[in-house]
Structure formats: structure tokens, C-alpha cells
């Protein structure tokens, strides 16, 4: 099957400073790709490009065989969504937050589906609660459900479980894994936790100062990285390109 994304010489600059320059990357349909790299290496920038939230300053990006331009159809844009590190919930009830994406699409939120999600998240007792009052872990679970209920073709995760406790980290990993196996969605997962990357990913892409240094199957990347930079990164050393 053709890849869901292809990146050719994709670049992003801010104020004349280039922060991303990817020569070539294909992201396969239905894969779970972990995106790792030191802070500032361009991981979040790449996710914003993959979610069509900003325009690249150069190069070509295709989504499902179609070139990504500012005029990309709404229906295509809506096949992709991101969960950010901060849950960014709206000042509405938990239920309204989970149903927000559906509301945007003119879909009437289905109460049974909502109840099922609240149950899975362990949040049934909080459905009517105002979302800003939730704890960090509860809020992130709501943010995840708000994305998963849309059954996106591509789920982008930008450190969704950073700063959370082991219980919430486990729950988030399990919910994503279940959604992935149910729908076959593509997942691109940015994480600082290499153990998490090891648990969830089929493939790993390692970014360093905006460049893709190594892309490999997870089993290979974590046991026998091909580049000295990746090896140093895995040892927890400060790395430069």
C-alpha cells in the first residue's frame, strides 16, 4: 500500500532560521511511528506540518497521494488530528469537550458512544463537570477521547503523557493501542521517554537539529542503532549533529 504521507526535502523556517529540513520520509498507513530527538530538534514542528496547521517554507508534503497545499480540502484535513502535551480543553463540560470534534462536523453526539467513552476513561461521574476543573491526568484522558471518538485516519501525539503518573501513562498507551488495532489508524507519537517509544512503536524516526538522522524498525533502533548520534541519544548523552 502506498504511504499515507510522503515528505520530500520538507523544510520549515521561522524568521529566517531553518528548524526543520527532512530530505525524505514516508509514513506508512497504519504504522505506529515514534518520533524522538532532543528538545528543540523540530518534532512538534513536524507534527504541525503533518496536521496542516502551518505551511512549510519549502519542499513537498503529500497526504494520501495528494499534495498538501493551503487549499487542502476540509474533508482531508479532518482525517488528521493531534493530541498535545497540554490538554487544551475548552471551558465547557467534559461531555461537550469530548463531543467537540463531532459538533464541528455537524454530527450529533451519540449519548451511548459518549457514555462508553466516559466509562473507558473512568470519568463517568464527571460528564457534567466543567472541564477546566479536571486534574491533569483526567484532562489528558478527555483530550485523548476527544480525538479518538473522531476515528481519525492519522493520530498525532505530541508528548501526550509527559508529566503524568504511571497509571495515566499506562491508560493512555492502552487506549491508543486499542484504537490503533480497532481502526488501523496511523499513529505518529512524539515522546521523550525512550522506554515508552520502545513499548508503543513499530518504527522510530530520530530527529536531530531539524534533520532526520536515523529511521529504523523499533527493534533495531533500540538494540543496534546505526548512527553514533542515535547511540549517544539512547545512552542519555547530549548529542549534536
Amino acid at each position: 500500500m502506498p504511504p499515507i504521507y510522503t515528505l520530500h526535502d520538507l523544510q520549515q523556517s521561522y524568521n529566517g532560521r531553518r528548524v526543520l529540513a527532512i530530505d525524505r520520509l514516508d509514513i506508512g498507513r497504519g504504522e505506529v511511528l515514534a518520533l524522538v530527538g532532543p528538545s528543540g530538534s523540530g518534532k512538534s514542528t513536524l507534527l504541525r506540518l503533518l496536521n496542516f496547521l502551518e505551511q512549510p517554507s519549502g519542499g513537498a508534503l503529500t497526504f494520501d497521494g495528494e499534495p498538501v497545499t493551503p487549499r487542502l480540502a476540509l474533508a482531508q484535513r479532518r482525517r488528521v488530528t493531534t493530541v498535545f502535551q497540554r490538554p487544551a480543553l475548552l471551558h465547557r463540560s467534559v461531555a461537550a469537550n469530548i463531543g467537540y470534534g463531532q459538533t464541528l462536523r455537524g454530527i450529533k453526539p451519540d449519548n451511548d458512544e459518549l457514555a462508553a467513552w466516559l466509562d473507558r476513561l473512568g470519568l463517568s461521574h464527571l460528564a457534567r463537570q466543567s472541564a477546566p476543573k479536571l486534574s491533569a491526568g483526567e484532562a489528558q484522558r478527555v483530550a485523548l477521547a476527544r480525538a479518538l471518538i473522531l476515528r481519525p485516519d492519522v493520530l498525532l501525539l505530541d508528548e501526550p503523557s509527559a508529566n503524568l503518573d504511571p497509571y495515566n501513562i499506562g491508560l493512555i498507551e492502552r487506549l491508543v493501542a486499542e484504537a490503533h488495532s480497532e481502526t488501523g489508524m496511523t499513529v505518529v507519537w512524539v515522546t521523550h521517554d525512550i522506554f515508552q517509544a520502545r513499548r508503543v512503536a513499530g518504527r522510530v524516526a530520530f530527529l536531530l537539529e531539524g534533520r532526520l538522522v536515523e529511521v529504523a524498525d523499533a527493534a533495531k533502533f533500540f538494540t543496534a542503532p546505526a548512527t553514533p548520534q542515535a547511540a549517544a541519544f539512547l545512552r542519555g548523552e547530549l548529542v549534536y549533529s
Binding site: 484535513r77 488530528t81 487544551a88 475548552l90 464541528l104 483530550a143 480525538a147 473522531l150
Partner: peptide, 21 residues
């Protein structure tokens, strides 16, 4: 919060829907 703006668009809001939200 700028993340909220990104999040709203990322969830599939049109320009008008983003403004209203």
C-alpha cells in the same frame, strides 16, 4: 493559550468555527 487555537483547528474547525469557538 496558543495551544488552544492549534487544538481547535487540529480537531477540524473551519476558520469561522475557530473564530466562534
Amino acid at each position: 493559550d496558543p495551544t488552544v487555537k492549534l487544538q481547535v483547528r487540529s480537531l477540524g474547525a473551519t476558520r469561522a468555527q475557530t473564530a466562534w469557538t
